[in-house]
Amino acid sequence: MSKMRKYLALTRAGIIEELGFRLATIVMIFGNIIYLTVIYFLWRSIFASSPTPVVNGMTFESTLIYLVLATAIFNFMEMYTVWEMGRNVQSGKIVLDLVRPMEYRSYLFWSYTGPTIMQFLTTFIPTFIIVECVTKAIPLGINLLYFIISIILAVMINYSIDFMVGTICLYSESIWGINIMKQVIVLLFSGATIPLAFFPEGLAKVASVLPFKAVYDGPLSILLMNSPEICDVLPILELQAFWAVMLYLLSVGFWKISLRQITVNGG
């Protein structure tokens, strides 16, 4: 219990810190509007060039809703962990994080929970409300509860991926390249930029065995389900739970080995 308190203290500090960055939030909302406008015209032309209004089982409207919500999820999911770890390793600031009486992985994770929650409230929720008001396409029922569970799992999976990629920064100096590569791969294979339904068969196969779709496609499909039965969502949640555990173990292990590397050889 008292152990939990030290983690929640990090969440609290993160929220207070986040409240100080109003400008950053405004800039981000502005950037999103531009991004979403581009998406809108892009997909409109894709659908306009198609002979039928339904492409790969999705209408223009459902595609757009899917992508808008994916962007909203991206906004609170992307915490630039890789970037921060890389910078801390290079500047040596990581030394100060390592003298905390906590495991570094948990320390960093809980430091991010504050901003994540704040971003969720300030970008995801408003987007959600706007989409719902305009389209009335998101069912408001039990799916929301499943969505919450699913999104928490997604945050955990995403953090493990980020933490693992961030750990690579202990070995390499090209943080920027690593970060971009990670982002491109995650955003593509998770269905955040192009809905997975549009993937050609080969690529879809690859995406289905990778953990990334558990980050975006999983929670989004649940969100858009109309009063789902438990048996509808269970396969998705099970897959997410599987990846959450697997990647947790992998990222912890990889970090342990790598930390030994720096403590033995110097970073």
């Binding site: 030290k6 929640l8 203290a9 990090l10 500090a13 207070i16 810190e17 100060l96 905390r100 009486p101």
Partner: peptide, 25 residues
Amino acid sequence: FGQRSQLWWSLPLVESFKLLKDIYM
């Protein structure tokens, strides 16, 4: 470490202290 700070950059000092209070129990 004289060259760098272990405090939370954008928090008032008292918040950093409260955080340390919880972290170190």
